[in-house]
Design a binder for these strands. Structure first.
Lengths: 140, 140
DNA sequence: ATGATATTGATAATGCAATATCATATAAAT
DNA sequence: ATTTATATGATATTGCATTATCAATATCAT
């Protein structure tokens, strides 16, 4: 079994901050890439280890969207949903909830406890016509 | 590369029928289990092979719900959503669509092309008080 | 500044779903 | 009924995400 966090390291500071400041849940690879732009030597094992520790400490939680790997977000974000860009695969939070079926009982004995809504389409970066600015990211 | 279907076999008939008659998309393991109750010798490789063939023939399509493996449903089912039981993990179709954000452009350049709604809770089998009938299935 | 030990980075090992292999069985045309 | 290529079942292999290992490094109480 693993143990709780005892020391503050640059790696953990960076990963924690990246997750806290992200506009949506981040994948392991996205985290690794962003963190390495600040600390190039950071290894993938540290990302996995830190995610597990932060999850056990209830600081973050995993979200899994249709068709995708696990992504991680701060656990203090309230009820919300996600938009996933089919071009760059990035995920952005959507605070509006279009559903009203909480804690309700449906016709035949189905009890709805929660729900997940994922909007799929193009994010601003990828829906914009190819401009003279930064190139459209195909993968993050 | 694989090739198209040329012969009708009992295995393929069974798998096709199971998918067509299911109340929701089936996982590989669910398919294997159900099919083996009719044809015990059926192997897992045949399930994968047949799913791939049926998908290439556009007879079925994969759906992936939050947190889950691929499931398979007939491709001629129209727009609908899914209910997943957190106890037995089975998935049942829900024909009602509570969303109206198709092909729309949201505030900042987000283009919504489609969406996935997954209701999570308890199915009739698992929400019912422990009765004297069949035991509650924990896994399918 | 030092020392004890938690943490890291590189990489090997693991777990598991999906695929490939191949001898045997089967469909269906003759 | 024969024949021949397709399909199957058992199982080995692959691919890939995650975890374990371990020597080297960094944190922090002293």
């Amino acid at each position: 079994m693993s143990v709780s966090i005892q020391r503050n390291t640059r790696q953990r500071e960076i990963l924690r901050r990246l997750i806290a400041e992200a506009p949506g849940p981040l994948s392991v690879q996205e985290l690794l890439g962003s963190a390495q732009s600040e600390l190039p030597a950071l290894g993938i094992a540290t990302v996995y280890r830190t995610l597990k520790l932060l999850e056990e400490a209830k600081e973050i939680r995993a979200v899994v969207l249709p068709g995708g790997e696990s992504r991680w977000e701060p656990s203090d974000r309230g009820h919300h949903h996600h938009f996933q860009c089919r071009a760059c695969t990035r995920v952005i939070d959507f605070l509006v909830c279009p559903l009203h079926v909480h804690s309700d009982t449906l016709p035949n004995g189905f009890v709805v406890e929660t729900h997940e809504v994922t909007l799929i389409g193009l994010c601003p970066d990828c829906s914009a016509p190819p401009a003279r600015k930064a190139p459209v990211r195909k993968k993050v």
